[in-house]
Amino acid sequence: MVDDATAAYIVENQKCFEDLKQVASQLAGLLVLAAAGSKEAVPDHPMLGASRELFQEANDVLRRSRPTERAMRHHEHLAYAAAFIGTSLKAARGSFEIDPILIPLRAGYAELERAAGALPGFEMVSYERACCGLGAK
């Protein structure tokens, strides 16, 4: 159970969490293509533009957000996640070397996982309605 103010925080920050997760997914996707030798993984890949926009939106929400005491740990993890993912995004500018992107990305993703564990309402994988036993509520 969470109090009303924390519930409001959860609602306000869900999109921020989802956006950061999506940016992390986009970077990871480009990295795997790069590591697999795909020509699609290039520094000017159009997806990176979308990633940067999403990241900016997430950061804006994060800056405005006023966490309750109950939500403080979640907010810290989200802020760390944003910092790491931001570093990863910057590293993807101009070149596409894997380690400078991947190392902070991993750290950012781990912070998102910690955030997901700190409050209800934040899921790392959308299980609902997915296949194979998911949706078996």
Partner: peptide, 27 residues
């Protein structure tokens, strides 16, 4: 999957069942 990730949030149904961590492990 990478293309799907580039779509706006309203297309997120297309990402069901995918764990970004698996993609990072694939790197």
């Amino acid at each position: 999957w990478v293309w799907t990730m580039s779509l706006p949030r309203r297309f997120r149904w297309l990402m069901l069942g995918i764990d970004p961590a698996d993609i990072m492990r694939a790197v």
